[in-house]
Amino acid sequence: MPLIHVTQAPGRTAEQKAELLRELTDTYVKVTGAKPEAVWVTVAEVPADSWSVAGDSLAARAAKAKAATV
């Protein structure tokens, strides 16, 4: 049973997440021939202050980007 796991920052609507789940399932089925019932997909949302790139949290990066445009 395949498991597709998506990790992302919060901010997508319930509708966007539902579409993502459908599209990921449909694509896996199309490419592999698996039955849709066999495809599991999870979405984990990590707060922006708990995820970093190059040592800066996503929250800090967003704050720096906002300050740079003001």
Rank of each mutant, 00 (worst) to 15 (best):
P2R: 00
G33F: 12
E37N: 04
R12P: 04
A44F: 13
V6K: 06
V31F: 10
T27L: 12
A38Q: 13
A18L: 08
V29M: 01
S57F: 06
P2Q: 00
K30R: 15
V46D: 05
T69Q: 15
A48I: 05
V70H: 15
L21H: 02
W40M: 14
Q8L: 12
V29P: 09
L21Q: 07
K30G: 13
T27F: 01
I4V: 10
K64C: 10
D49A: 09
A14N: 13
H5D: 12
T42K: 02
V70N: 14
K30M: 06
R22S: 04
Q8R: 13
V70R: 15
L20E: 08
V46T: 09
E23K: 12
A18D: 10
K35W: 07
L20C: 00
V31N: 13
E19W: 05
W51I: 10
P47C: 01
K64G: 07
T7H: 12
L3P: 00
D26Y: 05
A67W: 10
A62S: 11
T69G: 14
T13R: 00
R22H: 09
V53Q: 13
A34T: 03
Q16L: 09
V43K: 03
A34K: 06
A54M: 04
K66A: 15
G55L: 06
P36H: 03
T25W: 01
L21Y: 01
S57V: 13
E37Y: 07
A14Y: 03
V6A: 09
K17M: 06
T69N: 15
S57K: 15
V6H: 09
S50C: 07
V70T: 15
Q8Y: 07
A59Q: 14
V41K: 07
A59C: 05
V41F: 10
A54V: 08
L20I: 11
E19N: 10
Y28P: 01
L24D: 08
A59R: 13
D56T: 09
T7I: 12
L21K: 06
L20V: 02
A9F: 13
